[in-house]
Simulated scan of single mutants.
Amino acid sequence: MIVFDLACTEGHRFEGWFGSSGDFEDQRARGLLCCPSCGTSEVTKAPMAPAVPAKGNQRQEVLPPEASRPMANTPMPAEVQKALAALAKAQAEALKHSTWVGDKFAEETRKMHYGERDEAPIHGQASLAEAKALIEEGVPVAPLPFPVAPPEKLN
């Protein structure tokens, strides 16, 4: 799944999840997209500034053990816990039909973007340099909000 930031002609911004960039273009051309705030079907991709981790999508690989981490001395409010649980559930659902490609993510995504292989939902790892290069090429990618364990590391 690909997440795009979208905007309507009235200036409202919102997110949309698509199987591919082609799916977005197809739905837009057929008038199937509409702004949830005002209902207009004049929707385009909004500029995105993704937060791409340095390596992969596992927190322990992003920060060295000695790095400081944001902390709080009280439990998170129930609303935050509920929102995080919903986000984790949405990510799990989105990845249910996605294939793990490990460190071949940049290569495989680029092949799909340029039509060298069939499009399919995939997830994996990419270095910061690889992610930046993909974004600069216009290849739609997005970081995952929660760590994903490679299949070989699952019980």
Rank of each mutant, 00 (worst) to 15 (best):
Q27K: 09
Q27G: 04
R28C: 13
A29K: 14
A29W: 11
A29P: 09
A29H: 11
R30L: 11
R30Y: 10
G31S: 02
G31E: 00
L32K: 12
L32Y: 10
L33Y: 13
L33A: 12
L33M: 14
C34W: 05
C34S: 11
C34T: 08
C35H: 07
C35T: 03
P36S: 09
P36V: 08
C38M: 00
C38E: 01
C38Y: 07
G39F: 02
T40D: 09
T40Y: 06
S41Q: 06
E42S: 08
T44R: 08
K45G: 07
K45V: 12
A46V: 09
P50I: 06
A51D: 00
V52H: 00
P53C: 02
A54F: 09
K55V: 07
K55H: 12
K55L: 12
N57T: 02
N57E: 07
R59V: 03
R59H: 07
R59A: 06
Q60M: 14
Q60N: 14
E61F: 03
V62D: 03
P64F: 12
E66Q: 07
E66S: 13
E66K: 11
A67Q: 06
A67N: 05
A67H: 04
S68V: 13
S68Y: 06
M71Q: 15
A72G: 14
N73F: 09
T74L: 13
P75K: 09
M76S: 04
A78C: 12
E79F: 10
E79R: 08
E79S: 13
V80K: 03
A83P: 07
A86R: 07
A86G: 07
L87H: 02
A88E: 10
A88H: 05
A88I: 04
A92W: 07
A92T: 02
E93N: 13
L95S: 01
L95K: 03
L95I: 02
K96N: 01
K96R: 01
H97W: 06
H97F: 02
S98D: 02
S98C: 05
T99G: 09
W100M: 12
W100L: 11
W100Y: 15
V101L: 08
D103A: 12
D103E: 13
K104R: 15
E108C: 04
E108T: 03
R110A: 13
R110M: 14
K111V: 14
M112S: 15
M112T: 14
M112H: 15
Y114V: 15
Y114T: 14
G115S: 06
G115H: 00
E116Y: 15
E116S: 14
E116A: 15
A120N: 10
P121H: 06
I122S: 10
H123K: 01
